[in-house]
Amino acid sequence: MKDALGRVDSVVLLGGRSDIGLAVVTKLVAAGARRVVLAARGPADDAVAALLAAGATSVDTVEFDALAVSSHAGVVDSIFDKLGDVDVVVSAFAVQSAQEVYDASPTAAADAVTVNLSAQISTGLAVATRLRAQGHGTLVLLSSIAGVRVRPANLVYGATKAGLDAFGVTLHDMLAGSGAGVLVVRPGFVSTKLTEGLPTAPFATTPEAVADAVVGALAAGKRVVWVPRVVGVVAAVFRVLPRPVWRKISA
């Protein structure tokens, strides 16, 4: 249960090896969270050790394959059954390749949509059902400025994030009155292993900065957080630029 100071006890990370996800969970543990479940494909031994060192009293791992969407509700249920009440679920799994890769392989593009969007929805709905039933808790979804107005150079990834963002914002509305909610996180370009080799963008940020923002937004009960904050202003401008101008600057 969340306490009067906004500290949480139990945290689940879907995408147990995500740099941003682990940074968020590590900060939550440093702020007081004690029980963690990491859902990942394959072992996550380093992450487990790091979280135990940061002060977690239990860190369990659960096998989770983002592409296997039909297994997701079962995986989510088994995690909740194991932990009891879950205060925060960070859903951080995603894939990202350069647009040329997707141009060359529409199958790879479809898989990206499955992971970044379909799997986020199949897990997100299952999580929402459990949060609604327990009457409290927050699902954290990692959107991106890339989904605010999609650039041709980032077409497939941007489209998946646009879909995820719309899903998260509306899922929060759907949960209104239940005590549960969704926090949609919209970072600028984040330097992680996911984005290695991709061209960096202005207002680049780090997993640690994203984690700080998420922990603050959770304590404050926000539903959307931009990282860094200036990205929110930039996005507002992006949204209203005339199409010819947008084509020119986003190329």
Partner: peptide, 24 residues
């Protein structure tokens, strides 16, 4: 929810007005 017909949903907190949750 099966308990919906017993009562009404409400967000509750203590005298400190912190950490509200929803119950029937």
């Amino acid at each position: 929810m099966p308990i919906d017909d017993i009562g009404r949903p409400a967000s509750l907190h203590g005298w400190g007005r912190t950490a509200a949750t929803t119950a029937t």
